[in-house]
Design a protein around this nucleic acid. Structure first.
Lengths: 167, 167
DNA sequence: GTTGATGTGTTATGTTATAACATGTAATGA
DNA sequence: TCATTACATGTTATAACATAACACATCAAC
């Protein structure tokens, strides 16, 4: 998981974490959650989540379907979409609208209103939890409206790519 | 279809404006902008913008294509997408990602980083400029990243619909 | 009058997502 | 025990959204 680190002079939001630990934690978290909520963490659901958490970057539904196929599961579209919807509903997966892609949640315990920061060049995506993004919700100025879901995506260029860029 | 009604005691962000004036202002604004930037406000571009500003709600690309067809323009997909891209680039149209739809900008002079508030029930969409949304950008906490574009969409239920809802 | 920039037209195809219906399995309880 | 229900998955077909690639026209500039 995200280890709070002393701030360096480098790109904080894209910095690396201990992915082995992240993977294990995530599996444990989802198992616990499913038990607690009496939900079925079926082989298919588990596999979809593992696919997403494995390299921890956004994948299209059809990419996921391909990987499901390779793993011996059915790979017709509804299979993926149904499971993704289910995992999204329970906060373990987010959809990145700007990429029509899906990504494992970095911290299902906390990030109900995550912000995604997307580099248009290297296509890295960072999930920033609401406490850290400075984009706090709900806004005091939006009244008479109950926010149920947010899509907050910041697209641009990370400093690494910007330094490399000519154009 | 959805019939727009006079505002009652409801939701501030969805409140009505003088749409006749809005329409005229918008056309004037786009004309001025195009002259100033030496761009061509061709019949096709003007028509697409008029279609969008006419009822001022999000329309899918294929809805726009249908209306173009009715108006005697070509209605093959690239026609719409090209013009929409162009208008988006110049800030007169936004894409609402959550609906795969396009909407005329409420205020091209100011809203470079707009927030959209979307009622999932009545499907009304309000554009809130960054000054008013409380979601000010760029965040002081996101460093080493240059934000070029934002997608901020708040989906939920407006008070009018909530009051009417059972479930 | 050729060149290059721009705008539109057209065909074909690619990509993303859902509807509708069928099957399997396990728990519930009459 | 057997119907009922709830849930998960499988399958076919199609809908909805978007772009690639190429053709043609106009017009200003050289």
């Amino acid at each position: 998981m995200k280890k709070k680190k002393k701030n360096e002079n480098s790109s904080k939001i894209f910095e690396y974490h201990d992915h082995g630990a992240c993977f294990g934690d995530a599996i444990t978290q989802i198992e616990d959650y499913f038990i607690q909520k009496k939900l079925q963490l079926t082989p298919l659901r588990r596999k979809v989540f593992e696919i997403l958490i494995e390299d921890h970057k956004p994948l299209g539904a059809y990419d996921i379907l391909d990987k499901l196929g390779e793993a011996g599961f059915s790979s017709s579209p509804p299979i993926a979409y149904r499971v993704l919807d289910f995992l999204i509903e329970h906060g373990f997966v987010h959809k990145v609208q700007g990429l029509n892609a899906f990504i494992a949640c970095s911290n299902p315990k906390h990030s109900h209103f995550p912000t995604f920061v997307i580099c248009r060049k290297c296509e890295k995506v960072a999930e920033v939890s609401e406490e850290k993004s400075g984009l706090n919700l709900p806004s005091p100025r939006i009244t008479n409206f109950k926010i149920e879901k947010t899509t907050i995506e910041l697209t641009g260029i990370c400093s690494t790519c910007e330094n490399a860029e000519i154009r």
